[in-house]
Design a protein around this nucleic acid. Structure first.
Lengths: 330, 330
DNA sequence: GTGAAAGCGCTAACAG
DNA sequence: CTGTTAGCGCTTTCAC
């Protein structure tokens, strides 16, 4: 706004074109000129206007990410790594929080699409058709979701679920409850896709409860229902829900894992401080964020991005909320 | 990029100016014309280019926030409420994570300043002079920090600390450790500003340890030092650190609060699920975020913003990590 | 290697 | 109430 390219040009006694080149393609300017221009740039503290530049190049120098809940450490973990990678590539990051509302989510995408060179979408909520539609607006990369023809970075939920089931089965559990996340959530489907066959395979009966919102507060009613279902283990959709359930169980005097085993999903840092520390599945957040940024940027520059969808591995982390089934053979 | 204002103008058989007005100042266009234009806008899916608009108006329609660590729920809690408020006012939000590094922080501010109408800075790290300098670049609002002449929203750390001290003193503690946050952190100073006089007043001896980085992992060495210091209570700089310390203490078989009391600061959601649930001080994050956005926006539109700095109250939340001093009179 | 000039898409006077 | 016109700050042909 204050110091423009003309100020620099005048002071360096060159044309604005030369200033522009000195900054953008240093090798198309003589060394002497470049040094002089750069010195003036430094002296005046000149920074090109992103808006003006954007108007011409069509690039904004930003990427956007929209998530369902910034209160969930899973998404902020992703955001942190996205921000870091974006910075490395010289991009700013715009963030939108839809508060789990599909309509808001869509509006956010439509708005941010114009303000960013690419958009990362963590959207359990929107339907496939709409996503395909949205993908026409701007380079789009999905996180933890697959939609035909759209680039995505996913983490292996089904595999993680299989590990949980095997773990529980090995501990002698035969009747467990699964606390569903949002019904429309892709991640929830994936959990089920891993859970059901694995349970059948191990002869585990699964009582499905919910759906519940993936919020800490919703862990309480979920825990109550699980208790009423007469199971020996509870598999929660994610850590946040498991943590909420744990708090409720303690409130009701239920011994975890003595009377009831509990598992989460995500391995938030705080899973380690719960009482007791939570058995859960670790998600490769840092890698996923980095990967998704590269994916959307490649797409934005029409690079042949390589694989359209990449699946990153997950890993069971056994802590202290799972134990042998009560009254079992020990 | 694709459908421009001219396309709309042509299709609606009006001039581009009319389209612009129909969108921006609906009351300066006849109802009939407006409806026709709006219909075409709808039909074509036209959205004004933020870059072009920005170039003229000088407004970007975004506000930026830079924080030291997106992995800390304290900052993401703030971010969530900032995002919500920004959306209400029609602004996008840019986020920068400095990873606790002052140099990165400053670079982030300088970059984002050009891309936003205002900037919220959570900067424990940068020195006052630099902040004053930065404030010349763009409307700036500080969060949890006071610098002369600059708008700020702060939460009453000192007051919270006083409450903790009074609580601990009432439980019979006489020798406590304080785990310092970053030495240069304004919040840490504020904690001390509340702590020292209150401790003196209550006849409490304080062993100051650290500084430590306000990260979960740094809770472990902090806990070890506190243990070596032979105190009966440990006051951590914040919850994240307290949670890390708690994990370490459990690892070492120390009974909290039987042998040692522990307090945090911030009241993150996860403070309630720790083992045991953490006694801490609740910070008015939601209100602070909202307030800061309004402050910076008022500043950006040269409104007489009212109070330059607003202090929001904090509140002690007693949970289960504090108890009577061991061997006390019970 | 450098300069002049033409816009990028839009808003804001200024006329009518 | 509506149209014409002049840029916002910059990059990018196109000449020289």
């Amino acid at each position: 706004m204050r110091v423009t390219i003309r100020d620099v040009a005048r002071r360096a006694e060159v044309s604005v074109a030369t200033v522009s080149r000195a900054l953008g393609s240093p090798d198309r300017v003589s060394e002497a000129t470049r040094d002089r221009v750069l010195a003036v740039v430094q002296e005046l503290g000149y920074r090109p206007s992103p808006a003006a530049r954007s108007l011409i190049t069509g690039k904004t120098g930003a990427i956007a990410i929209v998530v369902p809940d910034l209160g969930n450490p899973f998404f902020t973990g992703l955001l942190k790594s996205v921000q870091a990678r974006a910075r490395e590539t010289g991009h700013a990051v715009l963030v939108g929080d839809s508060d789990e509302d599909p309509a808001t989510e869509q509006e956010l995408v439509r708005t941010l699409a114009k303000q960013a060179d690419g958009l990362l979408l963590c959207s359990p909520g929107i339907d496939d058709a709409t996503i395909t539609d949205l993908a026409g607006l701007t380079p789009l990369a999905l996180l933890n979701r697959r939609v035909a023809g759209i680039g995505a970075t996913v983490m292996d939920s089904a595999g993680g679920m299989r590990e949980i089931v095997a773990h529980l089965a090995a501990l002698g559990h035969r009747r467990c409850a699964y606390l569903n996340g949002p019904a429309s959530s892709w991640s929830n489907h994936e959990r089920l896709r891993g859970l059901r066959p694995a349970a059948a395979h191990h002869g585990l009966e699964i009582v499905e409860l919910g759906p519940f919102a993936p919020r800490y507060e919703d862990g309480a009613p979920a825990a109550d229902q699980a208790l009423a279902a007469g199971v020996t283990a509870v598999l929660a959709y994610n850590d946040v829900m498991a943590l909420g359930a744990l708090a409720r169980l303690r409130e009701r005097g239920v011994d975890v894992p003595g009377e009831l085993s509990v598992t989460g999903f995500d391995d938030l840092v705080y899973a380690a401080v719960s009482a007791p520390p939570l058995t859960t599945v670790a998600m490769p957040l840092a890698e996923a964020g980095r990967h998704a940024v590269d994916l959307v940027l490649a797409h934005a520059s029409a690079d042949p991005a390589g694989r359209l969808v990449t699946e990153l591995p997950t890993r069971l982390v056994v802590r202290a909320t799972t134990a042998r089934v009560p009254g079992g053979l020990g």
